[in-house]
Design a protein around this nucleic acid. Structure first.
Lengths: 326, 326
DNA sequence: AACACTAATGCTCAATATGAGTATTAGTGT
DNA sequence: ACACTAATACTCATATTGAGCATTAGTGTT
């Protein structure tokens, strides 16, 4: 073997589960620094990446994954994971770390069940992505102000407008990564400062970081927030063309419950009656005949996903966005 | 450094261009065995994968790439690239090759211009994907027959039905990879036999290969046909949500020309009047005022892509499929 | 037992979008 | 002047979508 620097494949997993409170992601148990579960790929022991991901997530959290999908492979120099964190198989100095991101859906947990590991609401890291309440809208508005101050070229201005749904454009909930990357470029997220500081120290980092904390969301280790953004975007987009929500929903659910789930994932409000209409027409769900009467209103029919929704190639949900809040 | 087997990152690029004859992909100049241009990633010299891809494609073919996008990272043991082909940076035995696939659009070439490198119609490798003419439909029908003979579990049967648009399902032009993987699993493409032969030799390969050649399409080195399938699927899907066709079309085009391009890429026929209607309404194109009179019929207006179509986040084309052939 | 309250479910209606044609029209070549 | 060809213009029925009002079946209260 030569003495040439090696390439090390780091695998990161965004494990998503949905509780009543909202979408939650599994964090690695690192002390202090927040990051996703990750491990390095063993070229001898692992036959495929996917198996490796399943392995180390189970090993680290005791949780067996259901749906798993590859997201993106990040190889940028300067944004890579710190080698020290790479675990037992981690390499030496001068090695290049390439990280392959995965998204996994952990299914819904039942009543009393408690999942292993540390779970966190993903909007902690992306407060501006939750447009269901005023808070998120305000955060977004603040960031837009800062971004507009930063944008000088017309391309930058147009990117801001498209990403944040300005000037007649509509907010695309799946453009999570575009928005995050803009914030990174503009130096409005902590990671940007951190990565720049590696090369040239000079700016008053402490002061800036304090300002950032407010609307820029919580930072993550390495490029993990970027991977999380990719996962959120992929999930939000995929809901529309594959019946993937059902992997996050309980076995039996009410249509309102399903709607809540979609709303929480996509961070938007939907029109209730129209949501129900498209769902019933889609053939993806079927009534169980059993009612659910625990909301204080009229009891709701419990539905299950239909067999046809399990066929590979089955379509997703069309989401009727609601303009007005009711 | 340890003596642990290394990981080598192979980069493969599907470089697509469209000529009058159809979509063409750039092949690497290997003697005999057909494959995509590829190179190995240099952990020291290359800052990002994308730059590395641009570099080696230019080096190998003299062609500067426009649009470049990452596809997927393949790491399965047993389907990886032969190490001998990996170029100057290629490693020794026992190393694990991980291949990162990219798609790049090379733009339209003008009249007399000749592109460097060897270009081939991509339907050579996927004859069943061209449903514009009888030939492709027949090939698909043949393969479906073989697949149905192979499918035993109900899951396999349903996958075949969904992928090939059987039993009320509709043919999804972007499911190229699903179809190829089914054919691979069923042993109906040459690569499957080749890869199996590595482990256990035993089947009469020569005889089988001869039968395959007919409808299974031309084989490629390593897992390159899988990467090509991924690229075709991604491109076909992306046409619908990003104005990406314009990166393959000439600067000025007629609507019929643009339609031909889309048809050839997606392998389907479109309804002419409706295509024109959605295009004009979309605001993605604008008339130049100049006419084009070389078809023998009424002269056509030449269009260009509009400035708004260049904004990041601009939508794609909605494709009105034509049932009947006219 | 009647009443208010709440959420679920049902139904309507206008505005678009889509699929499938038929009808003109402006060039080219004879 | 005439046939031919492809481009462009319209038409029409049928979904699909966005928005909203109306009714209903439970729960808890007076």
């Amino acid at each position: 073997m030569s003495t040439r620097p090696r390439v090390i494949i780091g695998l990161s997993a965004v494990v998503v589960a949905a509780s009543e409170k909202g979408p939650e992601v599994l964090l690695s148990g690192g002390a202090g620094a927040t990051g996703l579960p990750f491990g390095s790929f063993d070229p001898v022991g692992h036959r495929t990446f996917e198996l490796a991901v399943r392995d180390f997530v189970t090993a680290q959290t005791g949780y067996a994954l259901g749906y798993v999908e590859q997201l993106y492979t990040f190889g940028d120099k300067g944004r890579e994971a710190p080698l020290a964190d790479m675990g037992p198989a981690g390499g030496g100095d001068g090695d290049r770390v390439v990280s392959v991101g995965y998204i996994a859906l952990a299914g819904s947990i039942g009543e009393g069940q408690r999942r292993a590991g540390i779970w966190a609401d993903w909007y902690r890291f992306f407060p501006w992505e939750d447009r269901r309440r005023e808070n998120g809208l305000e955060t977004a508005a603040n960031l837009v102000r800062d971004l507009q101050a930063w944008a000088t070229t017309s391309d930058q201005k147009s990117r801001v407008a498209m990403a944040f749904g300005l000037a007649g454009q509509i907010w695309q909930d799946s453009q999570v990564l575009d928005r995050y990357e803009l914030l990174y470029e503009a130096g409005l997220v902590t990671e940007a400062l951190r990565d720049r500081a590696r090369d040239h120290v000079g700016l008053n980092q402490a002061a800036q970081a304090a300002t950032l904390r407010a609307s820029g969301g919580e930072a993550m280790v390495s490029d993990h927030r970027r991977i999380l953004a990719t996962a959120m975007g992929r999930l939000r987009a995929k809901i529309r063309y594959r019946p993937i929500v059902f992997d996050l929903a309980p076995d039996r659910f009410t249509l309102s419950g399903l709607q809540d789930l979609v709303e929480v994932l996509c961070g938007v409000r939907l029109h209730k009656q129209n949501f129900r209409r498209t769902l019933e027409r889609s053939g993806l769900v079927e009534p169980t005949g059993v009612m659910h009467a625990e909301t204080g209103g009229r009891p709701a029919m419990l539905f299950t996903r239909s067999p046809s929704s399990r066929q590979s190639g089955a379509p997703g949900l069309t989401l009727p966005l609601a303009r007005r809040q009711d």
